[in-house]
Amino acid sequence: MAAVHYESYTQARAHLKDLLDAADEGRVATVRRDSGRSAVVDVERLRRYLSLVCPSKAEVVAEAGGWSVFLPGLPLAADGATFDEAIGEMVQVLREYAEDWQDRLRVAPNHAENWGLVQLIALSEDGQLRDWLVGAPQ
């Protein structure tokens, strides 16, 4: 089957099942609205892709009787008494960052390019984020 393109929101709404089926199958599925065009993509397919193109590069260090996790280039860090606690805390830090990004950071020049990371965070469950942080296969 071919890609699915709808030139208006009304047309897409009338063919919503076809649009969602195309996305589920990995086919290109788009909707034009005014001067913009949006893609409809299967969540898990997009999440897996983002996890590959946005590697965490997390650095974990043992210090002061505990563990610290940080992501180079991002103002994100977490601490914990154990490795697992530090990783769990970093998952929460990532969630807070994604929320802050949605609220206000998306327009800040030093955060605007973190769109992919925010999408990855929002589309992942906690266990998936833990695996991403430690470099476990997705």
Rank of each mutant, 00 (worst) to 15 (best):
residue 60 V to I: 15
residue 49 Y to M: 13
residue 104 R to V: 15
residue 93 V to M: 00
residue 135 G to P: 03
residue 33 R to Q: 09
residue 69 V to H: 07
residue 47 R to L: 00
residue 102 Q to M: 15
residue 126 D to P: 02
residue 94 L to I: 11
residue 2 A to Y: 06
residue 107 V to M: 14
residue 17 K to G: 06
residue 19 L to F: 02
residue 19 L to A: 00
residue 39 A to T: 03
residue 45 R to M: 10
residue 115 W to N: 14
residue 71 L to Q: 04
residue 48 R to Y: 02
residue 19 L to N: 02
residue 100 D to L: 14
residue 3 A to K: 08
residue 125 E to C: 06
residue 101 W to S: 00
residue 101 W to D: 01
residue 29 A to K: 01
residue 130 R to T: 11
residue 130 R to M: 10
residue 94 L to W: 03
residue 59 E to P: 00
residue 113 E to S: 15
residue 18 D to Y: 07
residue 6 Y to W: 05
residue 67 W to N: 02
residue 102 Q to N: 13
residue 115 W to S: 14
residue 60 V to N: 05
residue 104 R to G: 12
residue 107 V to D: 15
residue 111 H to M: 05
residue 41 V to L: 04
residue 39 A to E: 07
residue 30 T to Y: 01
residue 64 A to Q: 07
residue 68 S to P: 03
residue 69 V to T: 10
residue 128 Q to L: 07
residue 19 L to K: 00
residue 85 E to V: 08
residue 98 A to L: 05
residue 106 R to G: 12
residue 129 L to V: 12
residue 31 V to N: 01
residue 107 V to N: 13
residue 49 Y to I: 14
residue 118 V to H: 05
residue 22 A to Q: 01
residue 85 E to W: 02
residue 73 G to F: 03
residue 121 I to A: 05
residue 126 D to N: 12
residue 20 L to V: 12
residue 137 P to K: 11
residue 55 P to L: 06
residue 77 A to P: 06
residue 75 P to F: 12
residue 55 P to H: 08
residue 104 R to S: 15
residue 109 P to V: 14
residue 138 Q to E: 09
residue 4 V to W: 01
residue 135 G to H: 05
residue 16 L to V: 13
residue 61 V to S: 12
residue 11 Q to P: 07
residue 66 G to Y: 03
residue 78 A to L: 00
residue 25 E to P: 03
residue 77 A to F: 08
residue 15 H to P: 01
residue 57 K to L: 15
residue 37 R to Q: 13
residue 125 E to S: 11
residue 8 S to G: 04
residue 132 W to T: 04
residue 43 V to D: 03
residue 99 E to S: 13
residue 109 P to H: 14
residue 5 H to K: 02
residue 43 V to Q: 09
residue 23 A to C: 04
residue 64 A to E: 13
residue 122 A to G: 13
residue 62 A to E: 11
residue 50 L to E: 04
residue 80 G to M: 00
residue 43 V to L: 14
residue 70 F to P: 05
residue 46 L to R: 09
residue 24 D to P: 08
residue 130 R to K: 09
residue 124 S to T: 09
residue 108 A to N: 14
residue 123 L to H: 02
residue 37 R to S: 14
residue 2 A to C: 08
residue 68 S to A: 12
residue 1 M to E: 06
residue 129 L to R: 00
residue 16 L to T: 09
residue 111 H to E: 04
residue 100 D to G: 02
residue 103 D to T: 15
residue 6 Y to C: 07
residue 97 Y to Q: 04
residue 70 F to R: 11
residue 26 G to V: 07
residue 10 T to V: 14
residue 116 G to Q: 12
residue 70 F to N: 03
residue 101 W to T: 12
residue 88 G to A: 13
residue 132 W to V: 08
residue 124 S to H: 01
residue 81 A to Q: 13
residue 101 W to Y: 07
residue 121 I to M: 03
residue 47 R to Q: 06
residue 82 T to G: 05
residue 123 L to D: 02
residue 133 L to A: 08
residue 100 D to Q: 09
residue 58 A to E: 04
residue 18 D to K: 03
residue 16 L to M: 04
residue 11 Q to R: 11
residue 5 H to N: 07
residue 80 G to K: 04
residue 132 W to L: 06
residue 49 Y to P: 09
residue 35 S to G: 10
residue 118 V to N: 00
residue 134 V to Q: 05
residue 117 L to Y: 07
residue 67 W to F: 15
residue 39 A to V: 06
residue 25 E to D: 03
residue 131 D to Q: 06
residue 12 A to G: 01
residue 73 G to L: 09
residue 124 S to D: 08
residue 9 Y to Q: 10
